[in-house]
Computed example of a mutant assay.
Amino acid sequence: MFELTNRVAVVTGSGSARGIGRTIALTLAGQGAKIVVADINRDGIQETVDAIASTGGEAIGVELNVTSEDSVRSMVEQVLQAFGRIDILVNNAGISQKVSVEEMTLDDMTRIFSVNMFGLFLCTQAVLEPMKKQGYGRIVNLSSVSAKRGGGVFGGAHYSASKAAVLGFSKNLAREVAKEGITVNCVAPGLVNTDIWKSLERNLANSVIDGIPMGRPGETEEIASAIAFLASEEASYITGEEIDINGGSHMD
């Protein structure tokens, strides 16, 4: 199940050890995919590539600034030169900021959207041509429980808005490219056990846990497993959907 042998997967934001990108890259590699570790963090890129190599997987690293169209186009060119195809794109790169609307600036709003939405758009647009030529593609976008329930722990209204925009964008694109053999889906994680979560003050952390019926944060592997499914052949008839992974903190 979820066999990804010889598939080429680009995972943005997979150089950081603080979020879930590295786990996503390792999980897809474990299913046989060739991984492109795309991140702005040079040192982190190499750490993820080395981690994949240590498990017998194949990976290359590409420095990427998702907010730069030139950087994104260069990344795609490098991947096509290295592997000749792009089968899977996981738009994981994202940033957050805890600030009230009253204190928020237009620069704050622009910065969050530039990475979380505009960067996702640039990466997605850039892979559509090679995916269409293949007649095959899997695009998985990272949204958030904050997009659906109106905020959370780490982000302000601009973060929630950017992640809600990801959902709407993904559904529209799914309709556009469905007949091309390309699926477009989202995962919307809730609280996840990352270094970011661990840095929270404990009283605040405990209050967040109280709002989760399962009584714990999710693990990065639990998010990555859902992404591996959506990236697989088995998910071939699923498009325009989002999978909520939040321990019951939000239920549609």
Rank of each mutant, 00 (worst) to 15 (best):
Leu4Gln: 04
Thr5Glu: 14
Arg7Tyr: 11
Ala9Thr: 07
Val11Met: 08
Ser14Gln: 06
Gly19Leu: 12
Ile20Phe: 03
Gly21Phe: 08
Gly21Ile: 04
Arg22Glu: 15
Arg22Asn: 08
Thr23Leu: 06
Ile24Asn: 05
Ile24Ser: 03
Ala25Ile: 07
Leu26Arg: 15
Leu26Tyr: 08
Thr27Cys: 10
Ala29Tyr: 13
Gly30Ser: 07
Gly30Cys: 02
Gly30Leu: 07
Gly32Gln: 07
Ala33Leu: 10
Val36Asp: 10
Ala38Phe: 14
Ala38His: 10
Ile40Met: 14
Asn41Val: 04
Asp43Trp: 06
Gln46Ser: 09
Thr48Met: 02
Asp50Asn: 13
Thr55Ser: 13
Glu58Lys: 11
Ile60Phe: 10
Gly61Leu: 12
Thr67Ser: 14
Ser71Phe: 14
Val72Gln: 01
Val76Gln: 00
Val76Pro: 03
Val76Arg: 00
Val76Phe: 01
Val79Ala: 04
Val79Leu: 08
Val79Gln: 08
Ala82Trp: 09
Ala82Val: 00
Phe83Leu: 00
Gly84Trp: 09
Ile86His: 04
Asp87His: 10
Asp87Gln: 06
Leu89Met: 03
Leu89Asn: 00
Val90Leu: 08
Val90Arg: 06
Ala93Ser: 09
Ile95Leu: 11
Ser96Arg: 04
Ser96Ile: 13
Val99Cys: 06
Ser100Asp: 14
Thr105Ile: 02
Thr105Leu: 01
Thr105Pro: 01
Thr105Phe: 05
Leu106Phe: 10
Asp108Trp: 05
Met109Tyr: 15
Met109Arg: 03
Asn116Cys: 05
Asn116Pro: 02
Met117Gln: 14
Gly119Val: 08
Gly119Trp: 05
Cys123His: 01
Cys123Ala: 08
Gln125Glu: 11
Val127Pro: 02
Glu129Ile: 00
Met131Cys: 00
Met131Gln: 04
Met131Lys: 02
Lys132Ala: 01
Gln134Met: 10
Gln134Gly: 00
Tyr136Lys: 00
Arg138Asn: 03
Ile139Val: 12
Val140Trp: 04
Leu142Glu: 06
Ser143Phe: 07
Ser144Glu: 12
Val145Arg: 12
Val145Asn: 14
Ala147Ile: 03
Ala147Glu: 08
Lys148Ile: 09
Gly150Cys: 11
Gly150Ser: 07
Gly151Ser: 03
Gly156Lys: 06
Ser162Glu: 07
Ser162Arg: 06
Ala165Glu: 09
Val166Arg: 03
Gly168Asp: 00
Asn172Ser: 15
Leu173Gly: 12
Ala174Phe: 05
Lys179Tyr: 09
Lys179Ile: 02
Glu180Cys: 02
Thr183Ser: 15
Asn185His: 05
Asn185Trp: 08
Cys186Glu: 07
Ala188His: 09
Ala188Leu: 01
Asn193Arg: 14
Asn193Lys: 13
Thr194Pro: 10
Asp195Leu: 15
Ser199Pro: 00
Glu201Thr: 05
Ile209His: 14
Gly211Asn: 15
Gly211Phe: 12
Met214Cys: 12
Arg216Ala: 13
Thr220Leu: 08
Thr220Arg: 15
Glu222Pro: 06
Ser225Arg: 12
Ile227Met: 10
Ala228Asn: 10
Leu230Ser: 01
Glu234Gln: 13
Tyr237Leu: 03
Thr239Ile: 03
Thr239Met: 03
Gly240Ala: 01
Glu241Ile: 05
Ile243Tyr: 05
Asp244Tyr: 05
Ile245Val: 01
Asp252Cys: 00
